[in-house]
Design a protein around this nucleic acid. Sequence first.
RNA 1: GGCCCCGUAGCUCAAUUGGAUAGAGCAACAGCCUUCUAAGCUGUAGGUUGCGCGUUCGAUUCGCGCCGGGGUCACCA
Length: 551
Amino acid sequence: MKAYLAEKLNAALSSLSYTGVEPTFEQPKLEQHGDLTTNVAMVLAKKAGKNPRVLAQEIVNALKLDPDSVEKVEIAGPGFINFHFAGAFFVRGLQGILKQGESFGRTDGGRGVRTQVEFVSANPTGPLSVGHGRQAAIGDTIATLLEWTGHAVTREYYYNNAGRQMRKLAESTYARYRQLFDPSFPFPEDGYQGEYIKDIAEQLKSARGDALLGVPEEEALQICKEVSEATLFENIRAVLARMGVRFDVFFNEDSLYTSGALQEVISELRAKGLVYDQDGAVWFKATALGLEQDRVMIKSTGEPTYRLPDIAYHREKFRRGFGFIVDIFGADHIATIPDVLAGIEALGYDKSRVKVVIHQFVTLLRDGQQVKMSKRQANFVTLEELLDEVGPDAARFFFVMRSISSHLEFDLNLAKEQTEKNPVYYLQYAHARIASILRFAESEGALAAGEQRVLADANLDLLSGAAEIGLAKLLMSFPDVIVSCSTSFEPHRLTTYLGDVATAFHKFYHDHRVVVPERDLSRARLALCKATQIVLANGLKILGISAPERM
RNA sequence: GGCCCCGUAGCUCAAUUGGAUAGAGCAACAGCCUUCUAAGCUGUAGGUUGCGCGUUCGAUUCGCGCCGGGGUCACCA
């Protein structure tokens, strides 16, 4: 429709010899402003030296449109040209939805480009937090949105199981293990305080008894590290799986060390004059690239800081053939990004192919009070505990329902509530209600069993009520919504849209009885129900939330 | 102090990326079930979009300056 109008509008403009303007269309907020609107008249007004409304009238007079699809064109406000489509246009569009079914909403603007989405990427030093949960939900949803818009997506998790943090983990587990035999054994100063370390120590004891007491400490620490890492990683995978999040690749930072990728980055940057030695450390000359200060890449101890492997990792992403790279980070990582982007650009890669998505933090609310989360005090709520409490559907929905650049206030009471107040249930209820109607229709003989697929043959012109057309109109915009969510990396818009669909459906349900004696009308309304169910199911699927048949 | 995010109805948040009269949900009040799921629907009320300049046909959106909240500024990740 947009393409059709663009063509007609361009023809009108050139017949009036206005050139050099590409008209744009958008969907007006208010229904009375029509279905599509263009602001060309206002854009052209200054250049043409004419009043925008007068200009708009000229353009409208020159337009030749098919009255079967465009019912009415009018000029409004400061000079908008509003196009009102015929109701039949929307209603007939339902056929397409019914035919496409579970693939309705997919588009191919991404042209199959190989796209990597990196998210979560927590090191195996402890259980996932609710912040990781938000990142998992956002990352997985963005990955799915990219798939739905034609990208070939790889979901990737980057982790480091070497270095200081893992050493600390091993020492913590070892100390807890020793304490099981001798409570006075000292716990490391800055060790991991959490209860989970004690659990791992207990496991170690029941599996191996006191065997670790008899081996040299280095060996015991190595065992502690391996067991802790394996246990924690297993837990991380399991918790993510409960949320329906699965990764294609777990990329180990360690491989960058063994492959020589780090040295390669250093020497290439050094050759470009972007690396120098000072105070026994190796520095990245970030100031030469317009950044605020130079940064250490290799400490005087010989150990790299995170920057070097991060740059090397991003180069690997390019080398592995990804045409588009999406990084999902929490707000606490924001400071590291400019260095990495500058680094890969200096290495000759196009940093505009990297999209960094930064999300803000999560605070939990219980009984109207903020739940204090302190990792140090070890009284933080883990993602696993949250899933136990509210379930994966509510968790995933709540995690993505706010703009990612905003703080998320997660109301535990609301997420648990199985009432109309809870937006997740509102959506799922609409889906279940439709399933129930379809079952009823079959039991009444209004619809033969398994006939749902051929509802596309229904006489859709019988749908003429405002609620019916309004709903059909909304359903038709689903593919555009997916594209918009995908290109803007704003998955919360999908939750808002689905809420609108559910509202429009409930209104339709309230205004019209679906199964009525007139068989053709029944079938038309059933087609509308089925199309709504398809949109809800597809939308929920993208969000990773179940679409129940009964509630 | 530098940089980043946020500030919109009593509360939690939207607002088609610069559009027309700023919208939802919750809370409050008033209604709607003999009928396909009331986990639903309808209505009322609620606003100087933190404040002030500026950019232009037009600003919640862009720029500058304040105010307030959060984050971040390591030879930690």
